[in-house]
Design a protein around this nucleic acid. Structure first.
Length: 577
RNA sequence: GGGGACGUAGCUCAGUUGGUUAGAGCGCUGCCCUGUCACGGCAGAGGUCGCGGGUUCGAGCCCCGUCGUCCCCGCCA
């Protein structure tokens, strides 16, 4: 028989109770996490979103309460009334935040019973995804899930506060809308009124936010839901959330300052301190130093050691002398056996037209002078694992050899990125040995522990663990070999560098974009650009993309019209949430 | 669209070369227990080995098909 709640009111959340509350008359309500029945003495762990408190039912003192405690099972909903008391010294549980106290119960109400779910929120091992989703409401009772939701709330609140403080207005944009030509497949919603026609769900608020700038809202942001009907991955969902923003009259620096502020605020809400301002690197430098446009800077970068080799050396090693010779080193990996090295071979992508030498010892025997020089250039220690990556003349990839002053050719990029990918794969594989990722794990664990308490301890220094960096000056276009045409690397509204405009038609590969990514630890956190605000430039871009006027009109018509009605210079950013 | 792994008790999983009655831990049910906190003790229930077909004297195990789940590639401007 269930009890009625009546006029009883909760006085505290379970997890909030501390030694300083001892002596108080307390009413708590929640779910039974575990029951420990000692016959005449029963302990109930009662749980709500704040945590767990031990409720004691003594048959001698409260026979009715004890009798109810005997019927109670895990996940029953109960209310317990009584006096909070300090536990005896030898009964203190240092593993629980509430472990110094317990509730000496005078009255126990059973508010609801439960069917037996296939798993319990108190379980250590978690059930498979399918079962968890079917019983989502039970799964979400788990401490870890409650903590994640809370953390997300804290972070988005901090982001809203930061952006609002910086003069941004949060504005919602339509969900049911016209299909816009972005990269992914649209989700479609059939229209009841217009049979046979469909609404599309937005892949991002890109067009809307640019329209808002044209409308004079000046600074806009939105924590926006985006929809893309593409195949899933473990870290990719059909609907996801972005922090989306756009501002008028921006310089690139002003966008960076805004993003750095909301991001550091968000991390601070998770108890992690990021140093401001974030470092910056151009796309070309990033390719040169990390072989990637989203560098992971927790480990040493790449070193071009071409100069260490005489031309004759390169010839006998069958390295392409026109391309960089790259040393990549991963600290403290130690010496690898031949078998271990062979197991690593599949991690290297030979299709990029590059080859490698991973037997540094043998290289030292044949080319001692070169190896000395490499050690000097890379600062490699005895215990470091060093691999040489170079262009393979036998494996020429299809690429133009055009080179621009101070910029990388496609073929160079191919070698750098082959080395960069290898660096990342090997870093993951030998994470235990170099230990550079461990710092991150430790900070994450510590931050998670912080977020469990209502009052957070001091912030953690995440400077070593989380290394954000701006990557700037991306190429404007990428060559799509399959369709034999130039494609926008970002999107077609990204503005080109003013100084590169002259090459738009003659030499698309050389044009840099006012476009930037924010990378952290080898992941892309977000990206953005300064947009095109002039109809003129926009037309030139379409021309170089070989998009005809009719086609442009059909695909972006209303947006191009809008550009003709007083569009301010504007730019923005979006970041995954 | 392509590739891989998996599917055995409510949950997490083991099951050897194809061989008698398919196991463990947790959970569940009953009984005992006044200081536990992943309480403990005793007893017990619980299985269409995803499904269909085949090979075999004999299939959880081998083969074919099928369904489902997860992961990866393509895809995600």
């Amino acid at each position: 028989m269930l009890d009625f709640l009546g006029t009883l009111e909760r006085t505290h959340r379970c997890g909030e109770l501390r030694a300083s509350d001892a002596g108080k008359e307390v009413v708590i309500m929640g779910w039974v996490n575990r029951r420990r029945d000692h016959g005449n003495l029963i302990f109930l762990d009662v749980r709500d979103r704040s945590g767990i408190i031990q409720v004691v039912l003594d048959k001698e003192l409260v026979p009715e309460g004890h009798a109810k405690g005997e019927q109670v099972r895990p996940e029953y909903v109960v209310a317990a009334v009584g006096k909070l008391r300090l536990r005896a010294k030898d009964a203190i549980n240092p593993k629980m935040p509430t472990g110094e106290v317990e509730l000496e119960t005078t009255k126990l109400l059973v508010l609801n019973d439960t069917k037996l779910a296939p798993f319990s929120p108190a379980d250590e091992a978690i059930a498979n995804e399918e079962v968890r989703l079917k019983f989502r409401y039970v799964d979400l009772r788990r401490h870890e899930m409650q903590r994640n939701f809370r953390l997300r709330h804290d972070i988005t609140l901090a982001i809203r506060e930061s952006l609002s403080r910086q003069g941004f207005l949060e504005i919602e944009t339509p969900i049911l809308c016209k299909s816009t030509p972005e990269g992914a497949r649209d989700f479609l919603v059939p229209s009841r009124v217009h049979a046979g026609e469909f609404y599309a769900l937005p892949q991002s608020p890109q067009i809307f936010k640019q329209l808002l700038m044209i409308s004079g809202f000046d600074r806009y942001f939105q924590i926006a839901r985006c929809f893309r009907d593409e195949d899933l991955r473990a870290d990719r969902q059909l609907e996801f959330t972005q922090v989306d923003l756009e501002m008028s009259f921006p310089r690139q620096d002003s966008v960076f300052a805004v993003v750095e502020d909301f991001l550091t605020s968000g991390f601070a809400a998770a108890g992690i301190t990021l140093p401001k301002p974030f470092p910056r690197i151009t796309y070309d430098e990033s390719m040169r130093l990390y072989g990637s446009d989203k560098p992971d800077m927790r480990l040493p970068g790449l070193t071009d050691v071409r100069a260490a080799f005489a031309d004759a050396d390169l010839d006998s090693l069958k390295f392409d002398p026109a391309l960089p010779v790259i040393a990549l080193r991963i600290p403290n990996v130690g010496e690898l056996s031949r078998k271990e090295r062979e197991d690593n071979h599949p991690l290297f992508d030979e299709k990029k037209g590059a080859k490698f030498i991973d037997d540094f010892k043998r290289l030292a025997k044949s080319f001692p002078a070169a190896v000395d020089k490499i050690r000097e250039l890379t600062g490699a220690q005895e215990a470091d694992f060093v691999i040489i990556v170079a262009g393979d003349p036998a494996h020429h990839i299809q690429a133009s050899d055009t080179k621009f002053p101070g910029r990388l050719s496609e073929r160079e990029i191919a070698v750098f990125s082959a080395a960069g990918n290898f660096r990342v794969e090997l870093s993951k594989k030998y994470a235990d040995r170099h230990g550079a990722f461990k710092v991150t794990d430790e900070v994450v664990v510590a931050a998670a522990a912080n977020s469990e308490a209502d009052v957070k301890p001091g912030p953690l220094d995440g400077a070593q663990a989380f290394q954000p960096i701006w990557v700037t000056d991306f190429p404007m276009f990428e060559y799509d070999a399959e369709h034999k045409q130039w494609m926008p690397a970002h999107h077609p509204f990204t503005s080109p560098h003013e100084s590169d405009m002259a090459n738009l038609l003659t030499d698309p590969a050389s044009v840099r974009a006012n476009c930037y990514d924010l990378a952290m630890n080898g992941l892309e956190l977000g990206s953005g650009s300064i947009r095109i605000h002039s109809q003129d430039v926009q037309k030139q871009i379409f021309t170089s993309l070989k998009i005809s006027e009719e086609e442009a009109k059909a695909r972006f018509g209303f947006f191009l019209d809008a550009l003709e009605y007083g569009t301010p210079p504007h730019g923005g950013h979006r970041a995954g949430a």
